[in-house]
Structures are given as structure tokens and as C-alpha cells.
Amino acid sequence: MFPYLLRRLLIAIPVLLGITVINFVIMKLAPGNPVEMLIDPNTPPELIEAKKQMLGLHSPAYVQYFKWLQGLAHGQLGYSFSSYAPVSHLIGERIGPTLLLAFAALFAGLLVALPVGIFSATRRNTRFDYLMTGLSFVGTSIPPFFLGLGLIYVFALKLGWLPPGGMRDLNGGGGLGDTLLHLLLPATVLAVAIVGKKIRYVRASMLDVLKQDYLRTARAKGAREFAVIYRHALRNALLPILTVFGSEIPLLLGGSILIEQIFQWPGIGQLAMQSILSRDYPTLMALNLVAAAVVLATNLLVDLLYSAADPRVRYDA
């Protein structure tokens, strides 16, 4: 187990490096540069040139990349081009809210999709099943930004029950209850998208397992239907579900850009949007690095969970 873990972590290093190279190239290929974004276009060219010198944009691209890498090796992510704040600070401030939003949505999604999917599968072709597969279709089809705006309109503007955006109330908010209140709408929007997709996964996976011979063996023993479903079937059905839920985590981190915009949620999605618009290279590079690390980490986590859930999967070396 430990050698396996070590090997996976060592393999992650070149993978991460490769990703940063690709990111850097794409970023450089994108039209526009940070200086144009920062400075009034009527500024004299000498001043622009000076600014470029200052930001290190005068040297060739590969030199810029290696300088960035050198900084990284020393634990430095550099400074933002637009706010001049250390990138590590910017990300550190923003990652918490994003993780909160992502995991709240994932948790809520699991909490709904699992039981509904199981019920749909065990009561296949009943009215409940049709209703749920129908709703899951609706859930997948509604664009999150549209649902977000709709929810803000109804629950914030019309009913006034929930805040329309932000993470805490400006008039002395910031407690746990206050944060949860702000969390409710954006998390719901993300959760709806997850639930819509995952109900189908859970249902399909469960249906697959329900056909297996070992469930007949369990019934032949005289086991109750409840035990057949939740003891014998569910653990087997969970294996593929684990993978799809795991792969949802990086999607949630990146995919919440839009939702964070709509709800003014102070997470890395918003930071990423601002950095893209201002061509804030150091921040973008760091954000990409974080995103790549999250993807690799969740993959590893899913693999480890898999071996815990399925006795046939063992990592020996």
C-alpha cells in the first residue's frame, strides 16, 4: 500500500509539470497581454515598455516559464499583476469558500441522488421511477446560470427569504448560520446539476447489480429484501458510483466559476474570472496548478477508496 502511494505521488510530479507547460503555452497564445489590460491605451510606448520590463514580460516566453518554475521550486507563486498581492495569499483567501460551496453541493447531491437512484432502480418502471428519471432529466437540462437567476428572483427578490449573493451579511454577519444562509442558493444550483446526472448513474449501476446471481443466492438463503438491497446489492453498486462522484470534485471547483459570478461568492472561480480578464499570468498559472493538483489528488483518493470498498482491488506495488 505505502509503496503504491509513494509511486503515485512521484508520478504526479512530472504530470503536474507537463500540465503547467501546456497551460503556459495556451495562456501565451491567447491574444492580449497584461499590460494592455492594465494601462490606458493612450499611454506613451516607453511607459508601456517600462511596465513590461518591470513585470518580466520582455524576456522570451521560455525564460518566463523557467523563472516561474524557479519561483515555484522555492515555494513562491509570485505576485498578481493586477493587485500586486502575493498569489498564495489570493488563493488562500479564496479556496476556503470554494471548497465549502463545492463540498456542500456534492454532499447534498449524494444525499439526494443515492436514495432516489436506489429507489428508482428497485421500483423500476413504476410511477415513482418515471417521475424521478423525468425530474433528473429536467435537472440536467436546466442551465445552472438560469436556475441561479431564477432562484435569486424568487427567493431573494420576491420572497426575501434568502440573500441574493455574497457569503456573509455586511451588517454584522459572518456567523455559521449567516454563511449557511448565503450558501443555500448557490449550493442548491450546483447540487441540482449533480443530482440530475447522478440519479441516472446510481439507478443504472444499481440495475446492473440487481441482475447479479449473488442476489438470488442471498434471497435463496432467506434474506429479507432490505438486506438483499442494502447489504448485498448496494456495496457492489457503489463501486462505479464512487468513480463518478470522485470525478465530480474537480468539475465542481472549475465549474463553479459561473455560479460564483452570479452569486458573488468570493471563491477561486471569481478570482479565475478576474485573472483571465486581466491576463494576470502568475495568478492564472497558480490557479491552474491548484486545479491540476486537485484533479490528481481526487483520482488518487478515488483509487484508494476503491481498494477499500472492493476486496478484489489491491495495490501491492
Binding site: D213, T217, A220, K221, G222, A223, R231, R235, D310
Partner: peptide, 30 residues
């Protein structure tokens, strides 16, 4: 109360008749 107690069954495919994620002991003890 009849299944397994009065009448028991042995199946054709031993490879698929046992639950792959539960130990032999837990299936037998059940």
C-alpha cells in the same frame, strides 16, 4: 422462513453465486 431453512439451493455458477464484496465468513454467518 422456508428459503434456506427447509429448502436450500445450490446454483450453477459458483463464480457469480457469491457476493464479491462480502467475505466468505460474513456470507456464511448470515
Amino acid at each position: 422462513s422456508f428459503r434456506g431453512k427447509e429448502v436450500a439451493m445450490i446454483f450453477q455458477e459458483p463464480m457469480t453465486a457469491l457476493n464479491p464484496v462480502l467475505s466468505v465468513g460474513s456470507q456464511l454467518i448470515e
